[in-house]
């Protein structure tokens, strides 16, 4: 069953096509990679899927519904969450608050209830905190729950961002270069963690990565973007031997 299906997605910035005629699908439960050289349009594609940018044309069908042009918060509430390439935590808030905020769309008590401290407020706040701490435990961040997000070391900030995305309880998780800036050991641990949460939360994951070897290792299928166009897709083996992909990457390095 397809959870996400993208048809002929186009995004123009002025005259420049950042993404053109992009097609992609993800089945429920898959872990799919999106790769490509710098400036290929990967992050733009993420921004189009999550609603941060409005597509110029094309469809983004998520769980059977076209969400192209829908606002990001609604897309999130429909069950999609993401991380950012350049970490966008709520820096001056605590680790716990970062996770609690992601849970906000599931909160039922009203503003009135919070203003006048009705019973529903206390009951649900307790539940939110417990759940948030559970998520932090998975990422071994629970002992740092009262620290400000900006004071965490880099690797922990990356983990916190994933924890925050998970707390929104998505069906589809989009990770934008989760291993950027990590050393090989940290990258390895992170990959294990991703495998674990995928299992535990029955997640579907779309992942942007720069590190080819890493993507080849974990993804079941891979899409390759270059200059905003899809140049190849298939299993890691197919991708590895695709002449267009090799050219795109070698061309970049040359």
């Amino acid at each position: 069953m397809k959870i996400l299906e993208i048809n002929k997605l186009v995004k123009l910035f002025g005259g420049l096509a950042a993404v053109s005629k992009f097609d992609l699908y993800i089945n429920k439960g898959e872990l799919v990679g999106l790769i490509g050289p710098n400036g290929a349009g990967k992050t733009t594609a993420f921004n189009l899927i999550t609603g941060v940018y409005e597509p110029t044309s094309g469809e983004v069908i998520f769980a059977g519904e076209n969400i192209a042009g829908v606002k990001p918060f609604k897309i999130n509430q429909k069950g999609m969450a993401r991380t950012f390439q350049n970490i966008r935590l709520f820096k001056d808030l605590t680790v716990l608050d970062n996770v609690r905020i992601a849970y906000h769309s599931h909160v039922k008590y009203s503003v009135f209830s919070s203003l006048f401290r009705l019973k529903s407020f206390f009951v649900e706040e307790k539940e939110i905190e417990e759940k948030a701490i559970d998520f932090l435990k998975i990422f071994s961040l629970d002992h740092k729950k009262d620290e400000l997000a900006k004071n965490l070391p880099y690797g922990e900030q990356r983990r916190l961002e994933i924890a925050r995305a998970l707390a929104a309880q998505p069906k589809l998780l989009l990770l934008d270069e989760p291993a950027a800036g990590m050393n090989p050991q940290e990258t390895h641990d992170l990959m294990e963690l991703i495998a674990m949460i995928r299992e535990k939360f029955d997640l579907t994951i779309l992942l942007i990565e720069h590190d080819m070897s890493l993507v080849m290792g974990v993804c079941e299928r891979i899409y390759v973007l270059d200059h905003g166009m899809l140049i190849a897709n298939g299993t890691p083996d197919v991708i590895r031997n695709d002449p267009k992909v090799i050219e795109a990457y070698l061309g970049e390095e040359a």
Partner: peptide
């Protein structure tokens, strides 16, 4: 508070 911190992150987190 999340809006103060980062509007784009807040919005993609369902706010």
């Amino acid at each position: 508070l999340s809006i103060r911190e980062d509007e784009i992150a807040a919005e993609t987190m369902g706010i």
